[in-house]
Amino acid sequence: MTERYPFSEPERLEVDPGYARTREGEGLTRVQLPYGTPTYIATRYEDVKSLLSDPRFSRELAVGEDEPRVMPYVHRPDALTTMDPPRHSRLRRVVSKAFSARRIEALRPSTQQIVDALLDRMENEGGPLDLMRSYALEVPMLVVCELLGVPYEDRDRFHDWSSVLASTASSGVGVDELMRANEDLRAYLGKLIALRRTEPAEDLLSVLAEAHDTDDRLTEDEMVSLAWSVLLAGYEITAYEIGNFAYTLLTGPEHLKALLDDPGLVERAVEELLRQVPLTSASFYPRRAAEDVELGGTLVRKGEAVLPSMMAANRDETVYPNAEKIDFSRDATGHLAFSYGIHHCLGAQLARMELQVVIASLLRRFPGLRLAVDVDDIPWRKGSILRGPLELMVTW
């Protein structure tokens, strides 16, 4: 039997019971996504880790018109997220230094300055105000613009492009609109990279240009694809994580109180929130078996695809007892929110640092922070791969 997937249209931050059901069942579950061929879905922690680290499961082989996916468009084969080694290893080496733990810690003071300036503005404006517009969307945009070397003045264009590119089958957004947004963004980034060839700076776009011009380590398309990936992941994903975390704390007074009482809990709290709070509306980036492989009690035949659900794996009771509950005393550092294996998120340390600074600074400045509207009146994203509030009105 093949089930329809996603199991349901997501509601706020609720997780469909289908994930728990498949996690507790025998073997892998066969599902059909809106686009592509049928696939298995892996929802148990160990199965997902095995899938993401076993070289017999190829990301590259899954790409194409028949890739099981919730987005209407077909992923490009030259993206970091669609490659296997050795191509993946070559591209990742080019940009990995920009995301080293040392480099990210060096960005912490400037991130703190960005956050403090936004909080100053919020304090001067006074509440109620929209935390998404004034804070959650602003911080990662400013940080990623500084990291990449992209003009902050163009932020509205980035937001429009990224919102379209995150659309799923239920959004009503057509393939033509998606492809136009994709090509417009790529053309824009291509022009910026061309500028860095004549006017290099201390940013990632200059690193990409140098890797192409000096070392011949990147093609033209690869340069743009890397910049595309960093911009979209570094902006929109982090922005809605901030929004979802703020919503979770403001609707869970015991969690908010714990952080107000002990600000030293922030690092541990960020890891637990990454584990427990769902960011995506569905799973994506399947792998295809390059040979027959047994996974989770199911024999996956050569050519068959398996979809990893990190969200479901992060709620596996065999790894995280009482996994549905948020517990800041838990050691959640082994979570799979940033994936695992060779495709572990390149910007994981950057996201962690931003989230720590954002949450700690917000609560330190506004310890009386609270919702300014009824929780049922908060509007949420629909028809998108990313969950998150469209608006989060708060006061203090």
Rank of each mutant, 00 (worst) to 15 (best):
H75P: 01
P77I: 09
P77T: 12
D78E: 15
A79P: 01
A79Q: 12
A79L: 15
A79R: 09
T81N: 08
T82Q: 06
T82G: 04
T82V: 06
D84W: 10
D84F: 08
P85A: 13
P85T: 12
P86S: 08
H88C: 03
S89F: 03
R90C: 02
R90D: 02
L91Y: 04
R92S: 08
R92M: 06
R92W: 05
V94W: 00
S96H: 10
S96D: 14
S96C: 07
S96W: 04
K97H: 11
K97S: 12
K97D: 12
A98C: 09
A98Y: 02
F99N: 05
S100G: 09
S100Y: 05
A101F: 08
R102Q: 13
R102D: 10
E105F: 03
E105C: 02
E105M: 07
A106E: 13
A106S: 10
A106H: 07
L107V: 06
R108A: 13
R108D: 08
R108G: 05
S110T: 13
S110K: 13
S110G: 03
Q112N: 08
Q113K: 14
D116E: 15
A117P: 04
A117R: 15
A117K: 13
L118T: 00
D120M: 11
M122K: 09
M122E: 05
E123W: 02
N124G: 08
N124C: 07
N124F: 09
E125H: 13
G126Y: 08
G127K: 05
G127E: 05
P128Y: 04
P128H: 06
L129Q: 02
D130L: 09
L131V: 06
L131P: 00
M132W: 04
R133W: 05
Y135V: 02
A136H: 01
L137E: 07
L137S: 11
V139I: 15
P140C: 10
P140G: 06
M141R: 06
V144T: 11
C145L: 10
C145T: 06
L147V: 15
G149H: 04
V150S: 05
V150R: 01
V150I: 15
P151C: 10
R155S: 07
R155I: 03
D156P: 00
R157M: 13
R157L: 14
F158D: 00
F158S: 00
D160K: 15
D160A: 15
W161S: 00
W161V: 00
W161M: 03
S162N: 07
S163F: 05
V164Y: 02
V164M: 07
V164R: 05
L165T: 00
L165R: 02
A166S: 14
A166V: 05
S167G: 11
T168P: 01
T168F: 01
A169V: 08
A169H: 11
S170M: 02
G172I: 10
G172M: 09
G172K: 14
V173H: 00
G174L: 09
E177T: 13
E177C: 04
M179D: 12
R180L: 14
R180P: 03
A181G: 07
N182S: 12
E183M: 12
E183S: 12
D184I: 02
R186F: 08
A187S: 14
A187F: 11
L189I: 06
L189D: 02
